[in-house]
Design a binder for these strands. Sequence first.
DNA 1: AAGACATCCAACCGCATAAGG
DNA 2: CCCTTATGCGGTTGGATGTCT
Length: 221
Amino acid sequence: MGRIPCCEKDNVKRGQWTPEEDNKLLSYITQHGTRNWRLIPKNAGLQRCGKSCRLRWTNYLRPDLKHGEFTDAEEQTIIKLHSVVGNRWSVIAAQLPGRTDNDVKNHWNTKLKKKLSGMGIDPATEFRYEGTASGYVLGGDGDQGTSMWSHHSMYSGSSGTEGGRPALQEKGNDSVGSSGGDEEAEDGKEGGKGASDMSGLFGSDCVLWDLPDELTNHMCD
DNA sequence: AAGACATCCAACCGCATAAGG
DNA sequence: CCCTTATGCGGTTGGATGTCT
C-alpha cells in the first residue's frame, strides 16, 4: 500500500551530516525550537528530510547529550531495566541523563550483549542458569557485585517489538526532546515518558533494585 | 605494508500511534 | 467518528575505523 514517504527522496540529501549542516540545524533550532520537523529543513536551508533532522538533533546535536563512554553505573542501569522492559530503548534511555535511545541500543547490541554472553547470561532474558533447583537467577557481574539481583524478568525476551510489545501507553506524553532549543531538559521532567509507563508492569511481587527512586516508585505502586 | 576481517556508531526504514481537521 | 498527517520508536544497514594476519 502506498505509504507516503516522509519526504520526496529526490531533492533530499542522505548520509553523513557535514559540519555546515549541523551548524545550520543547530542555529535554526536554537532560535526557533523544534515545532515542526517538516518545516525545519526547509526553513533552515537544509536539503534534508525532517525525520533526518529530528534524528540528528536528538541523537547528536542536543546540548544536553553526553558523548563519552558509558559508566559502570549506566551499564548496570541498562541491564537491569532491560531485564524488565526488554528492548524499550526509549524507556531505558529516559533513565539515563544525556543518553539517547539510539545510544543505549547501540551500546547494548555492541557491548553489553557480548558482556552478558561472556558471563554465561542469556542477553535476551538476563537469566543465568545455575544448574540448581533454585533455577534461574539474574546474572551478576563479578566485580560489580550485582549478584543480588534475583528478579524474574517480567517483560523481556521481546527481541522484536512485533507481537512482543505490551499494551503500555507510551504515547500521549509530550514528545521527547522535541520541545525545542529552549526546551527543558528532558531528564528532569520524568513523570513523562518511560517511568510513568512502567506502573502497569509491576504487580505484587515488585522487587526493589537500586534504581532511581522515581522509577522504583512507579514500578512498585 | 597491505589486505581481510571485526567492531562500532550514525543514519535510514517502516510501522504504530497520537494529534488535528 | 473517520481520515490524514506528523512524530516517535525499534530494527536494521552501511560506512568509517581499528585490529589481526
